[in-house]
Design a binder for these strands. Structure first.
Length: 637
RNA sequence: GCCGAUGUAGCUCAGCCGGUAGAGCAACUGAUUCGUAAUCAGUAGGUCCGCGGUUCGAAUCCGCGCAUCGGCUCCA
């Protein structure tokens, strides 16, 4: 009896049961077969060679789609696992999924894999690919699969099967040649369909991502349908290395990290400190404009306060402590405590709310050595932190205003971002009702502004749920910067109150929020975003003055003076070097403007700006140049 | 914190099987006074990450520690 198959374009064909999807697709559109790696049968991804059993819809998955790419990479990971087991005796396989930029497979092996091993594995993979072995799917009973892997000593697979929900009666196995893996699939039809791949590096990874478990060896690789796409991806990796803020930070003389000073501590050089000052000045201005008050708190506060706040019980491992005259003091990892003390300094009326306390607050957090990374992850950093105390009724407007603030800031710096809502973690304080209220408030504000978001279960702060803004840089990498946290717990613990219109005392709600997050991290992201070529308004040096010969120095000094007086950040290179040499150095430093001063300029009382893109502006007076710079700085260019 | 790799001049890197350290760029000095990405010549520069061990002798081999890099866990 024939069955009816519907394709995405609406066309229907009649097929005999047992016909493969491949054949059906071939009859529908012969051209599609070559680029198809699998298909969705009634919306469920399955192998291209799967026989049809009943009527339904088929949607081919192209190797050029995101889903197809993921299937390809997953298949490559199986081939890699086979190659590894071929080459090395006693390797156990764990898991090997496709990931955003490629794939990995985790192995348990007594020896360690070296970069040379990766080459050997790649060669063996090419042999397997040349064999063009089909990926064969087999559905077996759960117990049979367990026996199968137990006999082969594949204890990780046995554990995976044991942990399946009880109602799962059977699992699927995929084999290519002699290698069989527990796998949901689908896979590409055969090992001949592998596109272009490359193994990249080997790293440690805990079994099931739990640090209490055994550490396995993870081999990372990437794969693409074509060699060209692989080459382009490798070029992007190279580009990322070229933009690395640690490298540019040294080359542009922005900051250093110093072994003698200690890990995770940044020393800002004049240009880095200037860049930071520009950003911080912008922050102060923006916050005052938006109704925040600037405050400043101490770096250390008595231990009892940290006990009261819950930090001592829930955040102690991340804190540093010191002792003064037998009194325990905690070095602040967050800025909220002092802000609450400011709130408590007098009786507050509902008419005073909301209050918004802003501080460029420098905090210290103990980070494990292995996580430190340039400016992105450090032990001392400064947050553009604020705490807003408001009535429950004001909560929505305040959260919305912060989200708008984030949107405005990200626009100025040229970033896209994604939003996540993180809910209550296991280790936390406060009542269930308060957590529910806080989470709802955050969600409603996002929904009210039609901001799309994803839920990140159990990832909130210990005192409240949070909205995280993950900023995306030009290379598509994501960074956590802005965050809004809704907190009913700390106002309770510190007994913060306001007098309501009814004359009674009420509890305010506290919002913790940062816009750029850590200034250090944000600068790191900015360096990579702009590849060190900062826009004019941020550039520590906006204009570099270059003399052609020594006789132009007096006029050069005059110009330099005028620029400084006008607030233009200028530097001089009046050395006795050829112009081309000075320009090369200025260009390497990515200076927005180089102002050339020679006979023509001295005579006409002008300067000739050379832009970073290599083009010259027409000669103009210093005054006109200053106006030009000011206009562009005002537009945040 | 865990797994792995790495650590030589300011930077990038070479240095074989253990025999006492080298290049390019940068720096400094001199000459050159020059118009849009590198003028020429010379000089100087090293705790070979640190400590200990093996050895007649260690940058090189071994151990411990520190730091960095790539990941994992964690996170702004």
């Amino acid at each position: 009896m024939a069955i009816n198959i519907t394709f995405p374009d609406g066309s229907r064909v009649s097929e005999q049961p047992g016909t493969t999807i491949r054949d059906a697709v071939g009859r529908w559109n012969g051209g599609a077969v070559a680029t198809t790696v699998a298909a969705k049968l009634d919306g469920v991804p399955v192998d291209f060679g799967r026989p049809l059993e009943k009527s339904g819809t088929i949607e081919p998955i192209s190797i050029n789609s995101a889903e197809g790419l993921s299937i390809l990479r997953h298949s490559i990971s199986h081939v890699m696992a086979e190659a590894v087991q071929d080459l090395f005796e006693g390797v156990k396989v764990a898991i090997g999924p496709s990931i955003e930029d490629g794939f990995y497979y985790d192995f348990d092996f007594k020896d360690t894999f070296t970069p040379e091993d990766l080459e050997k594995i790649e060669s063996r993979m090419r042999e397997i690919i040349a064999d063009d072995r089909p990926f064969v799917r087999k559905e077996v009973a759960r117990e049979e699969a367990k026996r199968f892997f137990a006999e082969r000593g594949e204890t990780y697979k046995v554990e995976l099967i044991d942990d399946l929900p009880e109602d799962v009666a059977s699992v699927s196995l995929y084999s290519q040649g002699a290698f069989t893996d527990l796998c949901r699939g689908p896979h590409v039809p055969s090992t001949g369909t592998m596109g272009a791949f490359k193994l990249l590096n080997v790293a440690g990874a805990y079994w099931r991502g739990d640090e209490r478990n055994r550490m396995l060896q993870r081999i990372y690789g990437t794969g693409f349908p074509s060699v060209d796409e692989l080459t382009e991806h490798l070029r992007l990796l190279e580009e990322a290395r070229r933009r690395d803020h640690r490298r540019l930070g040294r080359e542009l003389d922005l900051f250093q990290m110093n072994d003698e000073a200690g890990p995770g501590l940044i020393i800002f050089h004049p240009k880095g400190a200037l860049l930071r000052t520009i950003i911080e000045d912008w922050e102060r201005k923006e916050h005052l404009k938006r109704g925040y008050d600037i405050v400043m708190g101490p770096h250390i506060l008595k231990g009892d306060l940290w006990k009261k706040s819950g930090h001592f019980d829930h955040y102690r491992d991340n804190m540093y402590f010191t002792e003064i005259e037998d009194q325990l003091y905690g070095i602040k990892p967050m800025n909220c405590i002092a802000h609450m003390l400011i709130y408590k300094s007098k009786i507050r009326s509902y008419r005073d709310l909301p209050v918004r306390y802003f501080e460029l607050g420098t905090v210290h957090r103990h980070e494990k050595t292995g996580v430190l990374h340039g400016l992105m992850r450090v032990r001392q950093f400064t947050q553009d932190d604020a705490h807003i105390l408001c009535t429950p009724e004001q909560l929505n407007d305040e959260i919305t205003a912060i989200a708008n603030f984030v949107a405005d800031a990200m626009k100025i710096f040229g970033f896209d971002y994604e939003v996540e809502l993180s809910t209550r973690p296991a280790d936390s304080i406060g009542s269930d009702e308060d957590w529910a209220r806080a989470t709802t408030a955050l969600r409603k504000a996002l929904e009210g502004s039609a901001i799309p978001f994803e839920i990140n279960e159990g990832d909130g702060a210990f005192y409240g749920p949070k909205i995280d803004f993950k900023l995306k840089d030009v290379l598509g990498r994501k960074w956590q910067c802005a965050t809004i946290q809704c907190d009913f717990a700390l106002p309770e613990r510190f007994d913060l109150t306001y007098v309501g219109a009814d004359g009674d005392r009420h509890r305010p709600v506290m919002l913790h929020r940062v816009i750029l997050g850590s200034i250090e991290r944000f600068i790191g992201v900015l360096i990579e975003q702009y590849a060190g070529a900062f826009p004019l308004w941020l550039s520590p040096v906006q204009a570099l003055l270059l003399t052609v010969t020594d006789r132009h120095i007096p006029y050069g000094e005059e110009v330099y003076r005028k620029l400084l007086d006008a607030g233009v950040r200028a530097e001089r290179d009046f050395r006795n070097e050829k112009l081309g040499y000075k320009i090369r150095e200025g260009q390497i430093q990515k200076t927005p403007f180089m102002l050339v001063i020679g006979d023509r300029e001295v005579e006409g009382k002008t300067i000739t700006p050379r832009q970073r893109d290599g083009k010259n502006m027409d000669a103009l007076t210093v005054e006109d140049f200053i106006l030009h710079v000011r206009e562009r700085v005002d537009r945040h260019e």
